[in-house]
């Protein structure tokens, strides 16, 4: 299904069209279910999460703004956010908000730089290639599997602070590269 057809369905859902909702579910639920399964790694929990996600989609369809991103990434972000919240509440991780952001390179892009988001898919692929291969893998796995810093550290067999520094530095390098 074309992205603008999904967008039309979301807009019809926003005005309470249940048939559009059923169709939207039919075309988009396999992807969103896969997101739940991948992050939650438990079938029953994934089914429960999928229910909550489509209830949110029904309730939030009217907040879907044209131009705020593609409809499929909007749907995927609802699914990812819900799944990540669920797994974080199941397995609390160490507090991380107060950490120092003391790792910033001098190479960081100025916030005043002009940015036009075009073709971000190709651009991010290019920028991921600029990262150290193991760091790029960690970034992608964190995203796709919804791993916490602790889990990433386990997976990479590295101290959590090292992983955190890698990942934050990778984010800044990605941002810098994409603004170029």
């Amino acid at each position: 299904m074309q992205s603008n057809e999904v967008e039309t369905l979301i807009n019809r859902v926003a005005i309470g069209d249940r048939q559009a909702f059923a169709l939207l579910y039919r075309v988009t639920s396999p992807k969103l279910f896969s997101i739940c399964l991948r992050i939650l790694r438990d079938r029953a929990e994934a089914e429960e999460a999928l229910q909550e996600i489509y209830i949110k989609i029904w309730q939030r369809a009217k907040t879907f703004a044209v131009g705020a991103g593609s409809p499929s990434s909007w749907l995927a972000s609802i699914a990812r956010n819900h799944s990540i919240d669920t797994i974080r509440s199941r397995k609390p991780v160490a507090e991380d908000i107060a950490d120092q952001y003391d790792l910033v390179d001098e190479t960081v892009a100025s916030p005043e730089q002009q940015v036009v988001i075009i073709d971000e898919g190709r651009r991010i692929a290019h920028c991921m290639e600029q990262l150290d291969a193991s760091h790029a893998r960690a970034v992608r796995r964190a995203y796709v599997e919804g791993l916490s810093y602790l889990e990433l550290a386990d997976e990479l067999q590295a101290p959590i602070n090292t992983v955190r520094t890698w990942l934050r530095r990778s984010l800044m390098k990605l941002r810098e590269c994409m603004e170029r």
Binding site: S34, L37, A76, Y143, V144
Partner: peptide
């Protein structure tokens, strides 16, 4: 939102898996 858009191409790593049909019935009921 910009990060969301930038990283959304990673969504291609998720394949598609059809959920059991009972799930939608449950959603509609709720």
């Amino acid at each position: 939102q910009r990060w969301q858009a930038d990283l959304s191409s990673f969504n291609s790593d998720y394949d598609e898996q059809v959920p059991p049909s009972a799930v939608f019935a449950q959603i509609e009921r709720r």
